[in-house]
Design a protein around this nucleic acid. Structure first.
Lengths: 226, 226, 226, 226
DNA sequence: CATGAATGAGCCTTCATTCAT
DNA sequence: AATGAATGAAGGCTCATTCAT
């Protein structure tokens, strides 16, 4: 088999790389539970089954360790996105896929997600890191889909890609943060379809709305109260 | 009129209350610049032109100080919202007003906003504070408007208020966070209209979409109750 | 009436002196409960129904306040001792009286006693205070009785007054400290007679022992194990 | 002999245990000079030739450090007591030995003694510590000797062991505290014999008092078990 | 490589004390 | 005379980080 699964992902790695990943996982676990400042290197070492000093063999500082958490995972996400998007035609469908994959990924990596959305996204220094570059790479996938949709005529012509992205990303992250903080909704993917049903209206051409397969249940209302 | 305006707000306060507000302002300034942990009480004291010990006359702990920052401001925001909404008819117009007031408020209090959106919103303990209660009170204003719009028939009948709120709040906060972190957009209220143009599509009935000039057909001649 | 009772003791005092005593009482209460360092001027002020600043009108420092606590009370004790001893003849009886009065005094002023025996007696600086001078004055009463007893021939000739005093004072204080710390014995005066029965043997002449009224029940034992 | 003597006691210890002892010694030195509150961890660290942080590797709090000071020493004292008492016959002789050993021990460890008698003995929390358990173990040695003396008929039958102990312990501690506070007597063991001469009268049968040269008639030729 | 052990640096928090009213 | 209000000064404790083994 050519594609390695997540399961045996670490199988082919050198021992050193494997330990680095162990540390990152432990760090994600501890950071997500305690926050950056309340997490201690000591606890991360314990969680990673290694020593504090060893952590400093792989990461220069505690902050560097924090910032390194998304690097590999965002690359994985990027690959998964690319892989799936190759198979999907139609901008709307591609937007849907991106949202779904993203939310699924968050759901499967709750600790990483907590680190990303509750800690890193609000850290100004994080913007200058390699990890953030990976995040922007992922964002660009979304941007491209929107632009393609506009150019192909599948989307409304007068939408502003920046605001579309803001709405999609902002909404998703808002939902995910609620999921992380108060456990609501229970299941992120449950939210996915509902969210999409709403958000997609932003993209669709006006005349398409009634016939849009995603919007079949929308009965035209009567009038408007004066 | 005899009631004090916002301008001379502090004029009528006792000295003790005035100092408390000074401290909260200094704290917002420092917390917004440094984050919670990197901010020191010493620097907050200096910024507030008071002593470290005095801070502890008004707030029990550093965290309590942090959590106290939004209390008064969120009450002010609530009052402003209530005041303006009394004058506005039509659910769409009211949604627009809420977004505008909110964004304007953020823009006018960037340090407070940074504390709120970059620090407090991701702190689990914050949820149990009095300040957070005020925030929920503000959210309920939004919820009510949505529900009224549905019941009055002005909005689509099959929208899910939870997701509508998530989209509006999530998007706004995303925009505001970008504004705080990278200075883009330069002006929050510039974003307001663009955002609204898009978001409003989520609420409107399908047949209204084409060509409906937003924000005009709901404003009766006066629109403002005497 | 010439002798004022403890009850109306404060009646004849100036208001200022009355407040000073109030403070000393509050201080004794708080110091006895918390110890010197853990007691705060703030709590003493509250307990004394006065303000922190007022305390500093009467006492220069917290330590000065502590050291001032025994001054008046030790003078009272001295007067009580002198008053009673005038009526008592016989060195043994006088020793007994001193012990009794002392223990009774401790029992009636448990907070003062705690301050004295748990805090002040182990403070090197206290030795140089006016209060300590009063304490030494009281000790001298005891010393005099012992010396009189020796000179009158009522006590053994070869006793060392220093060690006798050490035994009596050391034992009493040990008992009182236990009473303060673990509540045992419940009643100090209960201990008084038992203690005296034993301690008095140190003073009595050897040939007096068999006939001594305090020692009537002593049956001669048999032998000594080799 | 292979067993380490007291002299090279620290030789066989692990480095970590040796450092712990160094800290305890430094702590005893500083606490005895300054008292608990006025002693600073910083000064203890300096005195122990270690860092403040290291102290917290071995002791959880400053108070825990204080309370830990007697633990090992009281164990040593217990062993010394047991060792010597094995060699001594006669309850009077054993009482004498206990007093002597105790006072000698105090004299050899003046800083420890100051901590014990000037700080710890008056601390209510100390009662619940492991160290206090050791102290009670030592007290029980004394109690047993008294009881044995009563049962063997060597002592008066009607003495109350609680008061006997109070007298012996109270007196000794009183003397030792004076020695610590005002340097009088110069030499604790000088006091020992004088004190014993007096105190022993409390124990002896009445008829024995006249002319009985203490400490001779209980010592058989050898007195020491091979 | 891995790590046990050690520490320098720093901050929150507390009060005794002062002073203007 | 009395006090509310303000603060300077100080110390316990915590960790990120280093380094010898």
């Amino acid at each position: 088999m050519q594609r390695e699964t997540v399961g045996d992902y670490m199988a082919g790695l050198e021992k050193s790389e494997a330990r680095k990943i162990k540390i990152l996982e432990g760090a994600a676990k501890v950071f997500s539970k305690k926050g950056f400042q309340d997490a201690t290197i000591s606890e991360i070492a314990k969680t990673s089954r290694t020593s504090e000093a060893s952590i400093y063999d792989y990461f220069t500082t505690k902050e560097n360790l924090l910032f390194s958490i998304p690097l590999e995972l965002m690359r994985q996400l990027y690959e998964v996105m690319e892989y799936h998007l190759k198979l999907i035609r139609g901008s709307i469908n591609r937007v849907y896929a991106v949202m779904n994959i993203q939310l699924l990924f968050y759901q499967e990596h709750p600790e990483f997600t907590a680190v990303l959305l509750l800690i890193l996204k609000h850290n100004r220094k994080f913007i200058d890191t390699e990890s953030h570059k990976e995040i922007r790479k992922n964002l660009r996938i979304f941007d491209q889909i929107i632009e393609e949709g506009i150019q192909s005529g599948e989307f409304r012509q007068n939408i502003n890609p920046y605001y579309v992205r803001s709405i999609f990303i902002g909404t998703m992250e808002h939902i995910v943060i609620n999921w992380l903080m108060v456990g609501n909704p229970k299941n992120l993917t449950d939210a996915s379809d509902q969210l999409f049903d709403m958000c997609v209206r932003l993209l669709q051409k006006d005349e398409k709305l009634p016939g849009c397969p995603l919007m079949t249940d929308h009965l035209p209302g009567s009038g408007i109260e004066g």
